[in-house]
């Protein structure tokens, strides 16, 4: 696809749902609804809130209830969307989210939205906070419908699903066959990109290193810096914890059950009946967070190296630095 066709192609995506893309909002970026491609900042590094928000909403109503009728009633909204411009790390993160939310007890809210969504990936260049290369998530092999690799004056487009194939064939006028020179250019661009990564984290054996460092002083040291504000979790593309509340209406009989993203850095996360807290201080919470992120739960790295937690930590706790301390490298 030529660079000039991008506008027209994006316009045509309307057929497949409301289009969302990375938009500049102040100093950071956010996936917002767009009507034309030029509203997007496609050279963005990362959005503060990752695209998980389309599937596991930041806040959402799960259902309503009425005590008089003894009724629970679903309130699902529906609607097709196209998420344009997702980076490989965020695609990997969604693959992990899928494993959790679409397992043998699928989450209907997540599942519906996932089925209604078209994901269009977009190539990127790392900044000093990206370490997806170390996590092995810098090149999306699957998990998208289409993936656009930006070359000099064109895009190399990969098709990742039947849905993507359908979009490509319905918009065939924008696409040209790949020539060997394109492949050469793509190869060079990818090779160049591989060399752009400056931040590295050795991940082999990390799971065991974390286990061995369970009693390490590192946790106390960083917990002293930590606010316990939960920002790291809320901006993390793979953090998927949520909390649930019931809200009663003025009639005291009806109301709604709501869920919102939660954070394991908050006090209530480990709290059970009777005031017993399994993670009473920031030391246990911070350690738990790093162990969870560094694990291979669901047979995947639970961190995709997007750098958000480091960027948005108000006290500048550096994820990679902490893990390098755990490994004894620093």
């Amino acid at each position: 696809m030529t660079s000039e066709s991008l506008d027209a192609f994006v316009n045509n995506l309307e057929t497949y749902g409301k289009i969302y893309g990375p938009v500049k909002t102040g100093e950071s970026c956010s996936f917002q609804e767009i009507s034309q491609s030029k509203e997007m900042a496609l050279n963005y590094s990362r959005t503060m809130i990752p695209p998980k928000k389309f599937f596991l909403k930041l806040k959402e109503r799960m259902f309503i209830f009425d005590e008089r009728e003894c009724e629970y009633e679903e309130t699902l909204e529906d609607g097709k969307i196209v998420v344009f411009g997702i980076h490989p790390c965020d695609i990997y993160a969604l693959k992990l989210m899928d494993k959790i939310y679409l397992d043998k007890n699928p989450d209907k809210y997540y599942q519906m939205r996932r089925e209604n969504a078209t994901l269009i990936g977009y190539s990127c260049h790392p900044d000093e906070y990206c370490f997806c290369q170390s996590q092995g998530t810098n090149y999306a092999v699957d998990g998208f419908d289409l993936f656009l690799h930006e070359l000099k004056d064109k895009f190399l487009v990969r098709i990742g699903s039947e849905k993507g194939n359908k979009i490509a064939s319905e918009n065939s006028k924008f696409f040209m066959d790949v020539e060997s020179s394109d492949i050469q250019e793509f190869r060079e661009a990818e090779g160049k990109r591989e060399k752009e990564f400056t931040l590295k984290l050795a991940i082999n054996g990390l799971t065991d290193m974390l286990a061995l460092s369970y009693e390490s002083d590192v946790w106390k040291e960083y917990a002293d810096k930590c606010f316990g504000c939960g920002s790291c979790n809320l901006v993390c593309p793979t953090c998927r914890c949520y909390d649930v509340v019931d809200n009663v209406n003025m009639d005291l009989k009806s109301g709604e059950r709501q869920r919102m993203l939660n954070s394991c850095m908050l006090k209530k996360h480990g709290l059970v009946y009777g005031g017993k807290n399994f993670r009473p201080t920031r030391v246990e919470r911070l350690r738990n967070r790093f162990n969870c992120k560094g694990s291979l739960r669901e047979d995947m790295m639970n961190c995709v190296g997007c750098g958000r937690c480091t960027v948005y930590c108000p006290s500048k706790i550096d994820y990679v630095e902490v893990l390098r301390r755990v490994r004894g490298e620093l």
Partner: peptide, 8 residues
Amino acid sequence: GKCGNCII
């Protein structure tokens, strides 16, 4: 296994 509160 969704809400994550019980992770250990």
